[in-house]
Design a protein around this nucleic acid. Structure first.
Length: 425
RNA sequence: GUGGGUGUAGUUCAGUUGGUAGAGCACCAGAUUGUGGUUCUGGGUGUCGUGGGUUCGAGCCCCAUCACCCACCCCA
């Protein structure tokens, strides 16, 4: 029979490595909780229309990267390519924006994009996202960015740089885009082919093209900050002052462009400064027009998405030590049928006290059982045979140093390992 | 969608000018049948990605195809 393998761009998280995920997920959850975020759990698929309207028809994500299909009822369904649009949908559907604001919600979920996989880019990837609704002022931007920084710090990430930009609002951005287009149009023959395409679709992207010729042209290009309206300018300044106020370092990067249409004003990325081409571990920004676009009353919003796979890559690259995986508390070796039954009774009692207790299920001899116990890292072992069945007492062995002590099985079953551990002190 | 790279054991890899395949690690069994780590002995667990072609003979040469990796685009 031919083997079936995992689908392109998907990844198995195996038993030996899942604790790494559990660890960083736990840290991220407790961090966002300190900022007031509660978890929101939403469906994996939504009406395609939600993303067309929310994310934007012209974006790459909607244009060519969505997992879209018709279900048996003829509905157009899409696996979520990002988290924000669905949070807005749910908030409107359940009237959450009519409650006391701000509303804060976080999610930890997989998203799906039909892309060609490479390092740090999968078709199914996992992200932590937070969304804050109702606060229009710069303090909200600062706090959301601070939440991202705290998340990264909580898992031990060091070498990331916060990059900040303002892409303006519907009042001032079009003027800038026009200025940019006309500038680059006047240098058309100096641009690479990719940038000639970008000129219409996304002229901002030309600003950080790696092609030397494009880069030279880009140096003389107008910058967004010269075109920001007074309100956007004041907002941007206040965000920077707010970051200074709480000691969060940033660099301004006028080339940051978020690929989703809903962003306004503040956009930011936490970029890893080490290996790997996909350096953005966290990206987000303000989206003041999104709620209205999805049928709600005008409500400001801001949030970010943090890629868990990329976070793990960064931790790997930095050599951050994660706490070790759990090991069994005790392995009960047994010899013979009666002893095996006794081992199961003892193990059951120990588990009831909270221990991780293991017994032999492979029918191994004593020595292989000991080897196995050692291999899985059991802290204690105990050998049960005919004499232990007869006496009701056995030797408990501490694997780290081989020390042994005699213990009554009834006491062990009643008090668990805690009682036995005292005898080693 | 564009470009580059790689496919041999569970895994990391070696394999000469073409002669039906090897090592380390891992795994299993054992070293006088009641005690792990170290050591020793034994065990290959394989459709050489797949399908064709050339050849007396292909892991190796040719063609096709698939998969994976990496980069661009874009994004988390």
């Amino acid at each position: 029979m031919e083997k079936i393998i995992a689908q392109k761009g998907t990844k198995d998280i195996l038993p030996a490595e899942s604790y790494r995920w559990q660890h960083i997920e736990a840290r991220l959850k407790e961090t966002v909780a300190r900022f007031g975020y509660k978890e929101i759990r939403l469906p994996t698929f939504e009406a395609t229309e939600l993303f067309r309207r929310g994310v934007g028809e012209t974006t790459d994500v909607v244009g060519k990267e969505m997992y879209t299909f018709d279900d048996k009822g003829g509905r157009s369904i899409t696996l979520r390519p990002e988290g924000t649009a669905a949070v807005v949908r749910a908030a409107l559907e359940h009237g959450l924006l009519a409650e006391a604001l701000p509303l804060r919600a976080y999610y930890l979920q997989s998203c799906f994009r039909y892309e060609k996989p490479q390092s740090g880019r999968l078709r199914e990837f996992h992200q932590l996202g937070i969304e804050l609704f109702g606060a229009a002022g710069p303090a909200a931007d600062v706090q959301v960015i601070a939440t991202g920084a705290a998340c990264l710090e909580s898992v031990g990430v060091k070498s990331v740089r916060l990059e900040l930009n303002s892409i303006g609002c519907p009042n001032c951005r079009p003027k800038y885009h026009d200025a940019l287009r006309s500038y680059f149009a006047s240098h058309l023959d100096e641009l690479c082919d990719t940038c000639k395409d970008r000129l219409q679709r996304n002229p901002l992207r030309i600003l950080d093209c790696k092609n030397p010729s494009c880069a030279a042209v880009a140096k003389g290009a107008p910058l967004m900050r010269e075109f920001l309206c007074d309100d956007c300018k004041a907002h941007h300044t206040a965000v920077k002052e707010g970051l200074d106020n709480i000691g969060i370092a940033y660099v301004e990067n006028p080339t940051i462009v978020r690929g989703l249409d809903y962003y306004t004003r503040t956009v930011f990325e936490f970029v890893h400064t080490g290996a790997g081409a996909q350096g953005t571990v966290c990206g987000g920004g303000r989206y003041d027009g999104l709620v209205e676009e999805l049928g709600g009353k005008p409500t400001p919003g801001i949030g970010f998405g943090m890629g868990i796979e990329r976070l793990l890559m960064v931790l790997e690259a930095e050599g951050v030590a994660l706490p070790p995986d759990r090991v069994p508390d005790i392995y009960l070796c047994s010899m013979g049928t009666q002893a095996a039954l006794l081992a199961e009774r003892v193990a059951a009692a120990l588990r009831a006290t909270g221990c991780w207790a293991e017994t032999d299920l492979m029918g191994r001899g004593l020595k292989p059982q000991m080897k196995y116990a050692n291999k899985i890292g059991a802290r204690y072992t105990m050998v049960l045979g005919e004499s232990e069945v007869a006496t009701g007492s056995a030797k408990l062995k501490r694997m780290s140093d081989g020390e042994e002590c005699e213990i009554l099985l009834t006491a062990l079953q009643r008090d668990g390992l805690a009682a036995a551990e005292k005898q080693f002190a």
